[in-house]
Design a protein around this nucleic acid. Structure first.
Lengths: 247, 247
DNA sequence: CGACTCCTTGATCGAACTCAACGTCTGTGG
DNA sequence: CCACAGACGTTGAGTTCGATCAAGGAGTCG
């Protein structure tokens, strides 16, 4: 996906590229014809972001469509008085910034939680070559469609109590890690309790209490940001089984 | 937009078609060349839905992309034990069903709140003519992007108290009516208090109480589903101004 | 008119928020 | 290496907002 990867594309494809949402312009998924590779050279640009650095801020013009290769990011919205709300934690394989497609400027901010690498395509290039990379248009449509479907599923867990929402949050992270071929039972959260709370609409103390409560049942063990899942099936029940009741 | 409208397209374009999200295949926005009109004849099909009838149900295959011409719809998700949660109230000018693009089947259900007419394009036709109607692909990308951006804005109001959320709900409806050229100060809600509550994550009694509370300030008058907005600026403060506090 | 659904209002209860204090980890500089 | 600062996490106590339960009112349709 990086420019320097072009010559390597036939040799070794990083695992994360297989699920990358920029796949249709990316060398990793379809070997390019000469012209196509030229297009891609003009289009794809790699970028590295240090932990704590912003990738973009709300209000800035929409310049790049990103796909995260490694790392973890948080995106947040702010209201008039500066209160912020986490809207998501994009990680490797996710695209970033697409919500700005409509208004042409970002209405959320995006910051790296840990050191992160991301591939990007300039919006101008994307627009210019819209027909050539209509496969990518389609890919982005699918991505956005899936995001919306996920949001709908999310709504269902939203009126559940705190322990369930936190359990569901952990399950989703574990599932995502599993899909990426990582160990789903060892979670290293890159974000603070306050971030989780902002995302789940809970106070940070409530997140802590919920984690303690879940830990007491034996599903997980917590050591600050390290979470070990000992009984993922029970955790799944705690998250989604309406018959399960805590303590 | 309806087949029978084709001959009329040059004479009178319904106001709602100007903002229709199927615009790029619709006769109302761009007069067709002979071939294009033939394509459109194959593609666009009108449909009428009676109040209470389902347009599609969760689990059904994804067959049509809809654009609502007149009427009002609610979409809802269900969890394993049958509890439902309203995910949105699409109205005239909105597209419907796109969240299914990714999984190829619907994961929410959609039902008309009042008698509704909708234009639709079959997914098969859309896929078959994907290159010809790449303008529509782009249009749908913008639509989904905007939906996600709206969701992000929605998150900010979500941790506010009940009165604010209800006030914000009314403001959004008023703004949408204004955008469609209707009177923004006379709202006729097509959905029940329970539906609003499910959407806002509130009990239906809380919705009633919030409306009563807002009415007491003089911003609105409520008569069951008829809401008159008397002071929209105050209502806007009640929804979004962090300095505003209720009685 | 009666049956039904929806809306409204009141009273009580509980889950989560807020405030506060303390514990724990990390990084920095002497 | 240790001391310290600062950020983050945990736990407890009191409060509050909204859910729940309950009852009655109002509109609608046969």
């Amino acid at each position: 996906m990086f420019l320097e990867d072009i010559s390597l594309a036939t040799k070794r494809i990083p695992a994360v590229c297989g699920s990358c949402e920029l796949g249709c312009v990316c060398l990793c998924t379809s070997l390019p014809a000469a012209e196509r590779s030229k297009l891609i050279e003009q289009v794809v640009r790699p970028t590295r972001i240090r932990a704590g650095d912003h990738i973009y801020r709300a209000g800035e013009p929409f310049q790049w469509i990103y796909a995260i290769k490694t790392g973890h990011v948080k995106t947040y919205a702010q209201n008039g008085s500066g209160e912020e709300r986490i809207v998501g934690f994009p990680m490797a394989g996710d695209t970033l910034g697409l919500e700005a497609l409509h208004e042409r400027y970002h209405n959320v901010s995006s910051v790296a939680l840990i050191d992160t690498t991301a591939c990007r395509i300039s919006v101008r290039a994307f627009e210019r070559f819209a027909t050539e990379i209509s496969g990518m248009q389609r890919q982005l449509l699918l991505t956005l469609s899936r995001d919306i479907a996920r949001h709908h599923q999310w709504l269902i867990t939203e009126n559940q109590r705190a322990e369930r929402r936190v359990a569901a949050f952990l399950i989703r992270i574990a599932d995502k890690q599993k899909a990426r071929g990582e160990d789903p039972e060892k979670i290293l959260l890159p974000m603070s309790r306050a971030d989780i709370g902002s995302y789940l609409n809970l106070a940070h103390e409530t997140v802590t209490r919920a984690l303690s409560c879940i830990a007491k049942t034996g599903s997980i063990r917590t050591k600050r940001r390290k979470i070990d899942i000992d009984d993922i099936e029970q955790l799944r029940e705690q998250a989604f089984d309406p018959d399960y009741h805590f303590g």
